[in-house]
Design a protein around this nucleic acid. Structure first.
Length: 859
RNA sequence: GGGGGCGUGGCGAAAUUGGUAAACGCAAGAGACUUAAAAUCUCUCGUCCUUUGGAUUUAUGGGUUCAAGUCCCUUCGCCCCCACCA
């Protein structure tokens, strides 16, 4: 093992400064601080055990921003809390017979200590834990306010049922037809559920994206696609021989004459009705429900069932269409019913070919019919012409579309309709470890909200996880209560909120976390919100980030908040990846269980058996390719871990964890430490007055120092931390190369340079920089110091280096005063020996001079 | 299937947004110190050649331009999101 005695003692030093900051409450901020506010927030963790390497990256990024802004003079709110409700706690309870509350509390204790060992500048006085009644009391109140505002409803609906977690999932939580956590295939079930009307804000959430310029493009795009706005027509078809109509939605009304069938979803009310008297249809529906609809492999095999019913085209009485029940039609989108136009829609064509339905082309690109065989003509444009469409014949698609919509509207059989893919947020979860929904079910009064005076409805502590199902439902007494309206015996709602409920407003709670009457006060939220910079993983692009945007709008309507958008800036950090290893039996192996031999071959550390090397993937417990940050911090210190996270790669990019990488950073940390502790030139005492005269070298050093400050400022403002590190290292290379003289001002310039490095590194390596600042003779803490200022005259360049090209190929450079006369530049460029030989007396066609940039001699 | 993004040395990357490609670092090699190793320090380090110099290079082929890693088109490869959304 390494001989640590000859190195900077990170462990001791880091503990020392952490204690100092804590004693002085260095990161405590008050509401209404006269300085300009800056709110930095990292996505709060789920207390699942101990911190993982992704947390280290996330909180390092946030801490650099927080400390930088703080040094720049802002009142920085940088809080931390725990997203404590959720299934893992309940699963742990089942597995280890430990109460979720206890499990969570223990994990929080461990993780809080670990986070503190990273030296993060959190205001711990604002710490919150979402599973505490003091937190979720407010959430229950909000729910009741949402209910009053008409933003909540209860409905029997087809839901995503996770058979492993025994609970319902929101659409956002179903990935590729599987539960986002369990990975189990999701089934469709009909259940009574509470919903939040996120669709009421569909348009506003979409428009709001335009103002989120400081969000990553891909997140904006994902949300836009998720909301999925489309414009079209809702249209009624009369059902023949029935006193009833079928409502369909289409974005292509112009293709109405090409329709050859209608299709409704298997869960469409009409389908259910028909199934009552048709056993074959009943069987068909049951089978389709079992298979689900999301499996990609099923796409090409579309199944349909002919109901025998027919509908009439509203624009042509003699045009009758059969009505099918089809598994590719989704009940939740539009009206759950479509008309099929096989010639211009691939799915409809596949279906038509399978069930021998007519294929009639109604749009043509060039007045000639194209033959439609197995490929539909889908990508037509506005100027294509209509054919085979009676009154639409000869019109362009664009004109026909509007004509059909207007005709339908005037006949009263249709209306223009904007549709969204976004669906309401189902928030009921049939689990114990969540916030109870404050509702009482009374057999005579129906659904009755719990009066505010009876809040919070807390969870019972004596629960039994031995039986399957919701422990709240099985509990002997908890759900039995009295109806607040009529006083008769009644039952509590035993569902709890989706855990995304808690994280949808926690950022506001941090503004006044101790407030008991209200979740947050206007004075606090008006001062701190919105969050200026939010940092977290991209996996929440549409989950948490969309819910929070919705919640903020809902809270505004209910008078809680005055803003619509919770997060002004968003930084999505990349994943930490590591090679994967499997033993010869195919079992995953931890990196600590393998070793790399001199020949590069990887073997089992103990047995020497061969190991199968897999590709680098996101660190995950299941693949065992994890590095415990606690080991890294214990070995190298938090500052080394932090600098490693920031060096080399930009924050949004995935990074590969390598052992050699962290070693390299550790070596640099020590080199820097030695450089300051034992400077090459004698330094004047701290705060010595600036000398009147500087030698040339000292002048150069000073220029370099101040240019570095300028570059680092620009890098940090854009979160280009890897570049900031590179620029500081460049300065340290320059300082370490200083010749050992004591010419005018060199000592002073070196001190200025070293102090600058220490100060610029402070947000990244707070302990080391504090230590070195003290070693440089300063009594005051660096944490209380301001950000270095630039002496403008030192960064202004009087001379520039111009590249000189011939036909775009570099031939040399010239040094010249800035903004020099073009004539002089040309003369100087033409005088370069290489240019002279290359030209060989030829006269250039022209010479292009871009001031202060480049000269290009064109032959 | 639809949408979006990316491709630069052995590796992580940078490139003033169309203007000196490869900053900063990792790995590697050579040397110094050492009995030796580690650590540390110094030097070399895209590729090729006829090496005080020259040619060439940003997945691929073409185009625009005085000038292209950057803009446009072709092909190849990789990644992400949505996925029967009517």
């Amino acid at each position: 093992m390494r001989d640590l005695n000859r190195h900077y003692n990170a462990c001791e030093t880091e503990a020392k400064w952490q204690a100092v900051w804590e004693r002085r409450q260095s990161f405590h901020v008050c509401n209404g601080d006269p300085r300009q506010k800056y709110y930095v927030l990292e996505m709060f963790p789920y207390p699942s055990g101990k911190i993982h390497i992704g947390h280290v990256r996330n909180y390092t990024l946030g801490d650099v921003i927080a400390r930088y802004k703080r040094a720049c003079g802002y009142a920085v709110l940088h809080p931390m809390g725990w997203d404590a409700f959720g299934l893992p706690a309940e699963n742990a309870a089942i597995e280890h017979s430990v109460h979720p509350a206890k499990w969570i509390q223990e994990n929080i204790t461990v993780m809080r200590t670990q986070l503190k060992s990273m030296g993060l500048s959190f205001d711990w006085s604002r710490e919150i834990t979402t599973c505490e009644p003091s937190y979720y009391y407010h959430e229950q109140k909000m729910f009741l306010d949402f209910l009053d505002a008409g933003l909540v409803y209860r409905k029997e609906s087809w839901v995503n049922w996770d058979p492993v977690e025994h609970t319902v999932l929101a659409n956002e939580q179903v990935i590729d037809g599987c539960g986002w956590r369990s990975g189990a295939f999701v089934e469709k079930r009909l259940l009574n559920q509470w919903f939040l009307k996120i669709t009421a804000f569909a348009e506003d959430l979409l428009e709001g994206l335009d103002n989120l310029g400081a969000w990553p493009e891909n997140v904006l795009l994902m949300q836009k696609k998720w909301i999925g706005r489309s414009e079209g027509l809702c249209l009624f078809f009369d059902l023949i021989d029935r006193n009833d109509r079928l409502e369909i939605y289409t974005t292509r009304p112009e293709t109405i004459f090409g329709a050859s069938f209608c299709a409704i979803a298997i869960n469409h009310p009409l389908a259910s009705e028909l199934a009552k008297n048709n056993f074959n249809l009943y069987k068909f529906i049951v089978e389709c429900n079992r298979n689900g609809t999301s499996e990609a492999t099923l796409k090409f095999d579309k199944k349909g069932f002919d109901t025998g019913l027919k509908v009439r085209n509203p624009l042509a009485d003699d045009h009758e269409l059969p009505v099918y029940i089809a598994d590719f039609v989704i009940m939740d989108y539009g009206t759950g019913a479509i008309f099929g136009c096989p010639a211009h829609d691939q799915r409809d064509l596949d279906f038509a070919r399978k069930y021998n339905l007519p294929v009639k082309q109604v749009i043509t690109p060039n007045a000639n019919n194209i033959i439609i065989c197995t490929e539909a003509y889908e990508d037509y444009n506005e100027n294509d012409l209509m054919i085979n469409s009676e009154l639409l014949n000869g019109l362009t698609v664009g004109v026909a579309k509007n004509l059909v919509i207007n005709l339908m509207e005037s006949k009263g059989v249709g209306r223009r309709k904007v549709n969204y893919r976004l669906r309401d947020w189902g928030i009921s979860r049939q689990r114990y470890w969540g916030c109870p929904i404050p509702i009482i079910h009374c057999s005579s009064c129906g659904v009755v909200p719990v009066p505010v005076k009876d809040l919070p409805i807390t969870l019972p502590e004596d629960v039994n996880f031995d039986k399957p199902g919701n422990p709240l439902d099985i509990h002997p007494s908890w759900k039995h209560t009295i109806c607040p309206k009529c006083g008769a015996s009644a039952k509590r709602e035993t569902d709890t909120f989706d855990t995304f409920f808690e994280s949808s407003w926690y950022f506001a709670r941090f503004c006044s976390p101790k407030e008991t009457e209200c979740g947050f006060t206007h004075s606090a939220t008006d001062y701190w919100l919105p969050v200026d910079q939010y940092i977290g993983g991209i996996e929440h692009a549409v989950l948490h980030l969309l819910y929070s945007r919705f919640f903020t709008r809902a809270l505004k309507i209910c008078g809680y908040l005055n803003i619509k958008e919770p997060f002004v800036g968003l930084l999505t950090q990349g994943m930490i990846c590591h090679e994967t290893y499997k033993d010869v039996d195919g079992h995953w192996m931890f990196p600590t269980d393998v070793k790399r031999q001199h020949d590069g071959v990887i073997v089992e550390r103990n047995s020497g058996r061969s190991v199968i090397l897999g590709r680098s993937e996101k660190m995950s417990k299941s693949k065992k390719n994890i590095i415990d940050p606690a080991d890294i911090i214990a070995t190298f210190g938090a500052d080394t871990a932090r600098l490693f996270m920031l060096s080399d790669s930009p924050p949004e990019r995935d990074i590969d964890w390598t052992t050699v990488g962290i070693d390299g950073i550790f070596r640099y940390v020590n080199r820097l430490w030695r450089m300051v502790i034992n400077p090459s030139i004698e330094l004047p005492p701290p705060n010595t007055k600036i000398p009147d005269v500087f030698c040339d070298e000292a002048k150069k050093i000073r220029q370099c120092t101040h240019k570095t400050i300028d570059l680092v400022n620009k890098d940090l403002n854009k979160f280009h931390f890897n570049k900031a590190v590179a620029h500081i290292r460049e300065l340290s290379n320059v300082l370490s190369g200083m010749s050992n003289t004591n010419d005018d001002g060199t000592g002073w310039a070196l001190r200025e340079g070293l102090e600058t490095i220490v100060r610029l590194f402070n947000p990244m390596m707070p302990h080391l920089s504090e230590e070195l600042w003290s070693a440089l003779g300063h009594d005051q803490l660096l944490v209380d110091n301001t950000w270095p200022e630039i002496e403008q005259e030192l960064i202004i360049e009087n001379n520039v280096t111009l590249a000189v090209q011939i036909n775009g190929k570099l031939k040399g450079t010239i040094e010249i005063t800035k903004d020099a006369d073009i004539k002089i530049i040309k003369e100087k460029a033409m005088a370069i020996p290489k240019v002279v030989t290359f030209l060989n007396c030829k006269v250039p066609n022209k010479i292009i001079v871009v001031p202060n940039r480049i000269v290009n001699i064109v032959l």
